[in-house]
Amino acid sequence: MTLPLNPLTPDFAVAPQLEPTAMAEAAAAGFRSVINNRPDGEGGPGQPSSTSMAAAAAAAGLQYAHLPVQGGYQTPEEIAAFRELLATLPGPVLAFCRSGARCTKLFVAATQG
């Protein structure tokens, strides 16, 4: 698997839904943390659970955070939580959701001003 990355800065990239096996590849690519912005079950039963993603991330030596947010709208509280993750997780950070769009919106909102 080749990670479908969209780098937004040298220390932050987004991706569409990843599989647990991608965590080892993310670590090999130099990422130190992963943020999952997708609610469990959003994509149906075939979507990997946050628990399985967290276990795979830990096995790969990555920090893992699950901040589930809806695709259409992110609240000020969710944006603040994302900002806090960016400030506290070791970088580089890889965030993923269904397509990468909500992670991108969160990043832009969390880093404005």
Rank of each mutant, 00 (worst) to 15 (best):
53 M>L: 15
53 M>D: 10
54 A>E: 15
54 A>D: 11
55 A>Q: 13
55 A>C: 02
55 A>T: 12
56 A>D: 08
56 A>R: 11
56 A>Y: 07
57 A>W: 00
57 A>N: 03
58 A>R: 11
59 A>C: 08
60 A>N: 06
60 A>W: 04
60 A>P: 11
61 G>R: 06
61 G>Q: 05
62 L>E: 09
62 L>Q: 10
62 L>F: 13
63 Q>K: 08
63 Q>H: 12
63 Q>R: 11
63 Q>C: 03
64 Y>N: 00
66 H>M: 04
66 H>N: 11
68 P>A: 07
69 V>C: 01
70 Q>P: 01
70 Q>R: 14
71 G>I: 06
72 G>E: 14
72 G>C: 01
73 Y>G: 00
73 Y>I: 10
74 Q>W: 03
75 T>C: 05
76 P>K: 05
76 P>D: 02
76 P>R: 05
76 P>F: 03
77 E>T: 15
77 E>D: 15
77 E>H: 13
79 I>C: 10
79 I>Y: 09
79 I>T: 15
80 A>Y: 09
80 A>K: 14
80 A>T: 13
80 A>F: 11
82 F>V: 11
82 F>I: 10
83 R>D: 06
84 E>Q: 15
84 E>H: 14
84 E>C: 07
85 L>E: 06
87 A>D: 13
88 T>Q: 10
88 T>S: 14
90 P>R: 13
90 P>D: 15
91 G>R: 14
92 P>S: 11
92 P>M: 13
92 P>W: 12
93 V>D: 04
94 L>M: 08
95 A>I: 12
95 A>L: 10
95 A>K: 09
98 R>K: 13
99 S>A: 10
99 S>R: 12
101 A>F: 00
101 A>S: 08
102 R>K: 07
103 C>D: 04
103 C>M: 05
103 C>P: 03
104 T>S: 12
104 T>D: 07
105 K>C: 06
105 K>F: 07
105 K>V: 06
105 K>D: 12
105 K>P: 00
105 K>W: 06
106 L>F: 02
107 F>N: 04
107 F>E: 03
107 F>L: 07
107 F>V: 06
107 F>D: 03
